[in-house]
Design a protein around this nucleic acid. Structure first.
Lengths: 151, 151
DNA sequence: TTGCTCCTCACGTCACGTGAGGTGGC
DNA sequence: TTGCTCCTCACGTCACGTGAGGTGGC
């Protein structure tokens, strides 16, 4: 799996091919996610002209791809999950633009709630996979036992 | 996720609906897996007559469904993976029908190889998911920190 | 005989893959 | 100007979902 540790060739705005390479997807996939509203249209863009992406866009796509591959969710479910993420970006903007500590607390509590939802899904998966690993290991041990008995 | 711990209503042969319920799938999915050769046709069956399944069939479908949900493989890849499983069933039959210890050893060593392939895939996934869990936990801790600083 | 489940087409859908034909920017 | 990548249709594919119309077995 490709990660963001691949340094982008340039720090400036990127085109869709580079973004696809950095996120381990394809241009078609990125356009499709834009089409169904999972990604917002990148910047203002005239019809037929090239899409231009920022480093923040790349990070968002990486997150989506990671969750898509590791949890078994539909893109609609994934959309609802990262809507929370989108909200978090919005939250940070609002967070920085206000000094009201009550509002600060509210925004932070929303963030923890979003993170907890994701953590719960991840932990459930880890448990299921660990159970599978345990079962396979047990089978392996049983076969090994028979092999030893043979020699 | 449904598991085989749901005891089947009867111990005898089952129909497709019951099998679907026990394995957490649908009749359509089971027929589709048969169509693409992922499952062999259950018993000899005249055209248009009902399919009849055994407990062994249910266990095999459970395994397939479990691997399908937890690893992110295509049905073709999954087919190659459980071809090994199919081979194992065949192997057990041959294992019991021969007394040659050299042949026994060969068959057992094939079995360990198949199990190791599956274990490697499972462990890779566990690692990826653990990394994701770590990242999310770190984010959560950072938000918590800010919340404490506020009070 | 009545219900329920099963059967086989066959078209629909989700998440993209894959050309076809044309334009943009270093 | 030449290449390369990008653009927008639009049809194909994988893994099923979802009726349509008909038959099987307790």
């Amino acid at each position: 799996m490709a990660t963001v540790t691949d340094t982008p060739a340039v720090a400036g705005p990127m085109r869709i091919g580079e973004v696809a390479r950095l996120t381990g997807t394809t241009p078609r996939t990125i356009r499709y996610y834009e089409e169904i509203g999972l990604l917002g249209a990148p910047g203002d863009r005239a019809q037929g002209k090239h899409r231009s992406y920022t480093v923040a866009d790349v990070e968002r796509i990486c997150e989506i791809v990671r969750l898509r591959d590791l949890l078994g969710l539909s893109l609609e479910q994934l959309g609802r999950l990262v809507e929370a993420e989108t909200a978090r970006a919005e939250i940070r903007r609002e967070y920085r633009s206000t000094d009201d500590p009550t509002r600060h607390r509210e925004l932070l509590e929303q963030a923890t709630h979003h993170l907890d939802t994701q953590l719960e899904l991840v932990r459930r998966r880890v448990k299921e996979l660990s159970a599978l690993e345990r079962d396979l290991t047990a089978k392996r041990a049983s076969v090994d036992e028979k092999l030893r008995a043979l020699s």
